[in-house]
Nucleic acid binder design. Structure first.
Lengths: 217, 217
DNA sequence: ATTTTGCTGTTGCAAATCCCACATATTTAT
DNA sequence: ATAAATATGTGGGATTTGCAACAGCAAAAT
């Protein structure tokens, strides 16, 4: 089987299907050097890209000229207006952090009814819906975090998702403590203090990025 | 033209198209009394509903048995796993707040390639993608708010979106000040204090729900 | 007409959080 | 191997925010 079997966008599609889709969707692969611009996102759904090799990110230039990295991409990740629809008045682009190979699919051909009305086409659409739904879920989970009123609640909520994900009370944070503070939108020193306080209260054991939740309930 | 022309889900679809789709999608309309359960959402995309009449909401029962209203629906609004995909371990349902009429579309028939590969079908799918993208954008805008570190920044960010929306420096808040505080996840009295401080600093004029932004930049 | 309920506006005080500064690992680059 | 950059851990002190309480007002219910 080809490389694409590992890509969520193409789950359920075999070699035969890929061959058929490649023509039907006008798939094309482009190469980019680190630092190059891969695509610009508009206010309408019209592009769909897939990172085949290398890493990149989506950045947003706000009206004050401030540039922020909004999403990070690596092999297998998709981007496009379906997943991030910029406001009309902002400039938004996907940039290569390393040398990349990126596949583009023509949006018009995705939505347009396939002359052969092939099952592969339907599967691709289904996969896209799945990806869109998961993206929403992810965003919801994040807002759920942010709406928590106290630092402790934020940490616990986040740790809880990690516990579920790893299926274990002990896990390693997938990022540095500094980054975690940023992610939770709190001050790092305040977070360290709160972590200590949670250790003191017997809620968890922690050392560097290793956390063990106690008091399962 | 029919009532459905005003519904985002059916934009671009005429009477003829609706007739064709109705059979093709196995559309069916059900009635519910206030308080009744309209649907349960699972962890897989398999349902799509549309409020034709009446209001309702989506609620989530978390593992501790705490119930929260997550989304509110009125005429023309859609719901389903595409828009809110619950975690496997949670119970999630749509409930009627008033007497309702709700249309259901069969998800299998939406994704399955249409034997006639009709353009209406393609348009519906396209509309669904559009709705999914807008849902994501909305969530992103909200997280953007919540990631702001200070109360003042939260207020300004929110007011800025209202200014854009209304196209005017003066506007009426679409909710009570109390609800706004909840929405921004801050204490109401703290918010009132901050509003006063912003008035003192000449950033805006405000009285009750009426806001006028000064210092446009 | 009266009561009840909810929204607005304000205050003192307590608690949580942020900012800054420093010391020590640990990792990365040269 | 050495230097530089980044990550971790801690603390003091200023600031922001949350909490609780109250009063005036307006809308809605009785």
């Amino acid at each position: 089987m080809g490389w694409f079997t590992m890509v969520q966008l193409f789950t359920g599609i075999d070699d035969e299907g890929m061959k058929q889709l490649a023509g039907c969707m006008r798939m094309r692969v482009s190469r980019y050097k680190a630092g190059e611009r891969i695509a610009e996102l508009s206010g309408k759904i019209e592009k769909l890209g897939l990172f085949i090799e290398g890493r990149g990110h989506l950045e947003l230039l706000d009206e004050d000229g401030v540039c922020t990295r909004v999403e990070e991409y690596r092999e297998g990740d998709v981007f496009g207006e379906l997943f991030f629809l910029p406001r009309e008045d902002s400039y938004c682009s996907v940039e290569a952090d390393e040398d990349c190979r990126v596949m583009f699919l023509d949006w018009g051909h995705i939505v347009r009814p396939c002359p052969q009305s092939c099952v592969y086409h339907a599967r691709l659409i289904s996969n896209l819906f799945q990806l869109a739904a998961e993206k929403s879920r992810q965003l919801s989970a994040y807002t759920d975090l942010l709406t928590k009123r106290s630092l402790r609640q934020k940490l616990l909520t986040y740790f809880e998702t990690l516990r579920r994900e790893y299926g274990s009370d002990t896990f390693l944070l997938p990022m540095s403590l500094s980054s975690l503070a940023e992610y939770l939108c709190v001050d790092r020193s305040a977070m360290m203090r709160e972590l200590k306080s949670m250790r003191d209260d017997g809620l968890l054991v922690s050392q560097k990025r290793q956390i063990t939740l106690l008091r399962r309930k």
